[in-house]
Write a protein that binds this DNA or RNA. Sequence first.
DNA 1: CTTGACTCTGGTCTATACTCCAGACTTTAT
DNA 2: ATAAAGTCTGGAGTATAGACCAGAGTCAAG
Lengths: 135, 135
Amino acid sequence: MLKIGELAQRTGISRDALRFYEKHGLITPTARTDSGYRLYSKSDVLRISFILSAKEVGFTLNEVHQLLELEVTKDKKSCQDVKEFVDNKIQVVNQRLIEMKKIKQSLKTLSVACCGGDEPATHCTILGALNTHNR
Amino acid sequence: MLKIGELAQRTGISRDALRFYEKHGLITPTARTDSGYRLYSKSDVLRISFILSAKEVGFTLNEVHQLLELEVTKDKKSCQDVKEFVDNKIQVVNQRLIEMKKIKQSLKTLSVACCGGDEPATHCTILGALNTHNR
DNA sequence: CTTGACTCTGGTCTATACTCCAGACTTTAT
DNA sequence: ATAAAGTCTGGAGTATAGACCAGAGTCAAG
Ligand SMILES: [Zn+2]
Ligand SMILES: [Zn+2]
Ligand SMILES: [Zn+2]
Ligand SMILES: [Zn+2]
């Protein structure tokens, strides 16, 4: 059984973050010492690695929470359920991606039109473009 | 001169948002009535359109703030300054874009490996992948 | 037996961009 | 004159993911 500091070191997550995850129902230490110190077991470590993996592929803590529930009740859930969850997330990410590409394009358009020179920016096309009420 | 509600209607920004922008130094009504009502002039309307345009191309309010300062002091600033600002933002957006693409790819990899069937998810490759400590 | 390192709880703070609310005025319309 | 609609200020709440801090208790080593 590990104390919180040891677990923090092994996982690279801060003690505060671990307590934060606990507060939000992502993980609960298997036991406590008489004095109240958290004690984490091997399965707790596995759970942490699950959380980390899920975070790495872009799930929010809230989503990790839902994933953990799928995991725990996986005999009552189907692959369909799990895949649907992931596919939904892909849709969201994709949407966000499209928006950001648009933004990048707009910025590039602004940038290329500007001479970038040393003269005062009174004639700057960027500032000019932002000033025009475009609708 | 427009009262806040009229300006809100013309710009599509809520009254609360207008007051919020004011609190953060993005805009100040040209005048106030004796009773304290905000009064916006034509130049205030232009400023709002500047803010809107900048927001549309992805600048945060903080960045819009900096842009407005460039705008106001444009005779003391060069095109170089302005372009640099925009190019910096492009870099940031681009970085974010790369990260999101990675995430999307990871999610897709997870998704295609899952059968998506009706059977219990005890064998699900997605849950399996998240459970393996990948480093 | 006393440091120093660790842990506990509960609370505040950060950035982002607002929204919503209450209680009190003011203005407009009937 | 009265009611409805608009405005004022200040403050709280929302989601995200923790960081940091204080005051107090605990544990190991010298
Ligand atoms: Zn120029
Ligand atoms: Zn320019
Ligand atoms: Zn399957
Ligand atoms: Zn599956």
